[in-house]
């Protein structure tokens, strides 16, 4: 049986892993340095992480160059799927990361600015390589809007519509970040996660807001997500990947132990 995945996410700033307290604050200087990305990746690999996401929050040419090195070193030591996100704007950027050892690339603002980038990437590398990450916020009862630029810029797009469009264009997976919840440990938004998961034919990764083990179980069961992605819960040593998986198994969720 296909297991539900548990995916630690590493926010990388100039080659170091950092963690902001709330969405969009990382760039504003509210960072805590939590270590070397490759060391953390190796640790999570040993704990049985199902995949790893490296997210470049530097968003500069220099940051990208150091990211390539991080991915190469991680890929040399972790024999597991790796995804890179942040600052990927062109098919050439994608190629650089895939060649460095990434298995998937994740795009967000650049896909909103140029939706055709999804199609170009999928045609060149296959849909399985192209992840579209969506930041959304509940703006009215029963309405979720997509935000760009790290959650700062409203787009006017409906989250479900954009999710469907991204998949039509060739996205092989979606990551859904609920802005209200991210970083505040208030839990995932189960309603929008489930709605998108039921309406697209590709896997949906729920991100943002994992504060307790039951938050993760809930978004996999009620939210119908295929995977959970989390950062602080792992970096601050609240739980290990194995503890998360053991809890999910107790709730009857198929996981790889």
């Amino acid at each position: 049986m296909l297991a539900k995945r548990v995916i630690p996410c590493l926010d990388v700033h100039d080659g170091h892993v950092t963690r902001g307290v709330q969405f969009g604050r990382a760039e504003a200087g509210g960072l805590r340095n939590v270590g070397d990305p490759v060391e953390l990746a190796v640790r999570y690999n040993e704990q049985g992480a199902d995949e790893m996401v490296f997210f470049d929050i530097t968003a500069s040419a220099q940051g990208r160059a150091s990211m390539v090195g991080v991915i190469e070193r991680a890929a040399d030591q972790c024999f597991m799927p790796l995804t890179v996100g942040g600052g990927i704007r062109t098919v050439e950027d994608m190629q650089t990361m895939l060649r460095a050892g990434a298995d998937k690339v994740s795009i967000n603002s650049s896909a909103l600015a140029t939706p055709d980038l999804i199609r170009q990437g999928a045609e060149k590398f296959g849909s399985q390589c192209i992840v579209v990450s969506i930041d959304c916020k509940k703006v009215a009862p029963d309405k979720w809007e997509v935000f760009a630029k790290g959650g700062r810029q409203p787009t006017g797009l409906d989250a479900v519509d954009w999710a469907k469009k991204a998949v039509e264009l060739g996205a092989g997976e979606l990551v859904l970040n609920s802005i209200d919840a991210d970083g505040t440990k208030a839990g995932f938004d189960l309603v929008i996660t489930r709605r998108i998961s039921e309406q697209v034919g590709v896997p949906v990764v729920a991100s943002g807001g994992a504060g307790t083990l039951d938050h993760m179980a809930d978004v996999l069961i009620e939210g119908q997500a295929d995977a959970v992605l989390a950062a602080s819960i792992f970096h601050f040593g609240t739980y290990t990947v194995l503890q998360v998986k053991e809890h999910l198994a107790k709730r009857g969720i198929p996981v790889r132990l």
Binding site: M1, A3, K4, Q128, E173, P203, D226
Partner: peptide, 14 residues
């Protein structure tokens, strides 16, 4: 086949 099945098949399977 698609339908209710998510494609691609991504992840760890037995």
């Amino acid at each position: 086949a698609g339908g209710h099945l998510k494609v691609p098949h991504i992840g760890w399977n037995q």
